[in-house]
């Protein structure tokens, strides 16, 4: 081995954080939501999660073997993609759907663009968008009414967002049920408390930046409060809007993906606000009842632009000089 001089830009200060350690933190943070999904939707939920995770890990290994790249399944990133995709699926879907969705997410959205760190959109959300476009009926109809451990009612059940939009009848569940997760919805999005536990853990461990989830949820809250009720301002059911759908899951676990979110503090706030605005746009005036996943995908695409706009101030430069430099 010859000694090599490593030339790299600052900062040169290193923390002990490594990719697998960070990823493991995210996996740990997702566990409350995983447990909640199994509690409310029974073993079917566990089967979907396991299928999705194993499909993600196997596709990553097979693809990397096939193109003779280093096999990176031990860094847990494929595991996270698998869990997140499962969390984004209705509990009644057939098991081949998470399998195909995860394979698509890993191979098409992640590996073909160069693997971890090079994907331009969040792989799990790309997988969800693909499934949504490929089998829309399964993705929008296979809801189950929640019950404790296998007490799941097989009858289709309306999600609170569909009820809010007037797309389907039925009564809204109480706030307490919404917080706990006792309502129809995708696997991992129903239990706000479980997601919050994981989210706060990630913020405490400094894995994610609170600006994105706070900006995201805050924007949705304000906009749905102002515009939520047709024909009247400031009367929208904002509390319901932020608690329903995949907002908390998306805000804490998917919009905060390092690879596809801006690197500066200001940029991250912009990312959160942008996601919130697009979500509200889709929820209130768009064709779908839920807009969280598409809003994050869209903001993923403009992340490089955000990074260009909010160039951090050069150390020692002020006002005008900075502007000149930024151009």
């Amino acid at each position: 081995m010859t000694e090599r001089l490593v030339v790299s830009p600052s900062p040169h200060w290193k923390t002990g954080k490594t990719v697998p350690a960070l990823m493991l933190d995210v996996v740990m943070a997702l566990m409350p939501a995983v447990v909640a999904s199994v509690v409310f939707f029974g073993w079917k939920a566990l089967a979907i999660i396991l299928t999705s995770v194993s499909s993600a890990v196997i596709s990553e290994a097979v693809y990397e073997k096939a193109v003779k790249r280093e096999v990176t399944i031990k860094d847990y990133s494929a595991v996270i993609t698998g869990i997140l995709l499962a969390m984004n699926m209705p509990p009644g879907v057939p098991l081949w759907m998470p399998a195909i969705g995860s394979a698509f997410a890993i191979v098409i959205a992640k590996q073909l663009f160069g693997g971890l760190g090079c994907n331009f959109v969040n792989p799990a959300l790309a997988g969800r968008a693909f499934l949504m476009a490929a089998w829309p009926l399964h993705m929008t109809r296979d809801w189950l009414a929640p019950g404790f451990f296998g007490g799941v009612d097989a009858a289709a059940s309306a999600t609170p967002l569909a009820v809010l939009k007037g797309a389907s009848g039925g009564a809204l569940p109480g706030i307490w049920d919404m917080l706990l997760g006792n309502r129809a919805g995708c696997l991992g999005e129903t239990s706000i408390i479980a997601i919050l536990i994981g989210g706060i853990y990630l913020i405490w461990k400094e894995v994610i930046d609170p600006r994105i989830p706070l900006g995201f949820i805050g924007t949705v809250f304000v906009l749905t409060w102002v515009f939520g009720k047709p024909g009247a301002f400031f009367q929208g059911n904002a509390v319901y809007h932020i608690l329903s759908g995949g907002l908390f899951l998306g805000a804490f676990f998917m919009a905060t993906d390092y690879v596809t979110s801006p690197v500066t503090a200001k940029g991250r706030l912009l990312m959160g606000i942008g996601c919130g605005a697009i979500t509200v746009l889709i929820r209130l005036w768009g064709g779908y009842p839920e807009g969280v996943s598409y809003s994050i995908l869209l903001m993923n695409l403009v992340t490089p632009l955000i990074d260009r706009v909010v160039v951090p101030r050069y150390y020692g430069w002020k006002g005008e000089a900075r502007k000149e430099k930024a151009l």
Partner: peptide
Amino acid sequence: FEPAAVMLTPPGGFI
């Protein structure tokens, strides 16, 4: 198998 409608849409064409 259950056909994937996405393949008939423009994104499917591009993929």
